[in-house]
Amino acid sequence: MISFKHVSKSYTGTEKAVNDVNFEVEQGEIVIFLGPSGCGKTTLLRMVNRLETITEGSILINGQDIGELNEIELRRKIGYVIQSNGLFPNMNIEENVTIVPDLLGWDKKKKHKRYKELMQLIGLDPGEYRKRFPNELSGGQQQRIGVVRALAADPPVMLMDEPFGALDPLIREKIQDEFLQIQREVKKTILFVSHDIDEAIKMADKIVLMRDGEIMQYGTPSDILIHPKNEYVSQFIGRDRAIKHLSLRTIAQLQEEIGLVEIDQSIVDSKQVNVHENLKDTLAMLLNQEADQVIVHDDNDEVQGAITIDRVQRYLHLEMRQKPAQSGGKEKVME
């Protein structure tokens, strides 16, 4: 668990890049720092591994004040990924990936074994890439190497500063998916900087929404989408917040709340969809196909019923009107 306690940072003396920030991150969660350029995301992140000093307040990892730890040892236990990947051009891929194990004094065999494991994690052939240099890889491959390099010594905490920000949208989405897949296995506590709201909604367990060094709202993506705390937050997430929110909900959840509709037999040639499909894509399907219904089946291919635009809309209204029940506890921290 990571706790930020009244953390402030000023570079110049007067202006505060980070201003009295308070929140807690649970073990195994992805928390995304979100906000416009210059709002202090990177600064906040870099205080965790002490690349920046903390002007006021403290950061605790599992109850330990990081200010009291040896900074070299602290950093070796925290994975660090940056946007420009930071791979060393003078080292080949294997040397790059195993740099932290090497610093920790692992023997050759153990390092090589770990290298192979990590490459398999991202589906790159360990033998083929071993002796290559970073500039002989595509941008996407370099970034993935950057991610597994940070995972190499199996640190409990990862800091990632816009790790996928420089990639083109298609590759970015693929790597996000792959990363979520990896995270399901490794369950790291991840602090992640982004200025892309869609990325945050997709990847985050919690979002820290910032402005001018201060936290505007801290909560789950659906919390923030459904119950923006103030004008700034609702402006930031945009007018399409309702649609964004649909990407967080599945047909199964809709079915549980309000049920599906009977299949209208008079409509021929209806599309089929899995019950775990998210509602945003389902809605897109309904709109694009100009179909009045989509037939829903479960994992065993058994037909559950049908879903219509109307149904999605009703569910959305219900959701948006709900009280902020699930987030009450977390927001207290900020008040």
Partner: peptide
């Protein structure tokens, strides 16, 4: 960024 990455990974 290389120096930053090195620092961040705990290089002396």
């Amino acid at each position: 960024d290389l120096i930053d990455a090195g620092k961040g990974m705990g290089m002396k």
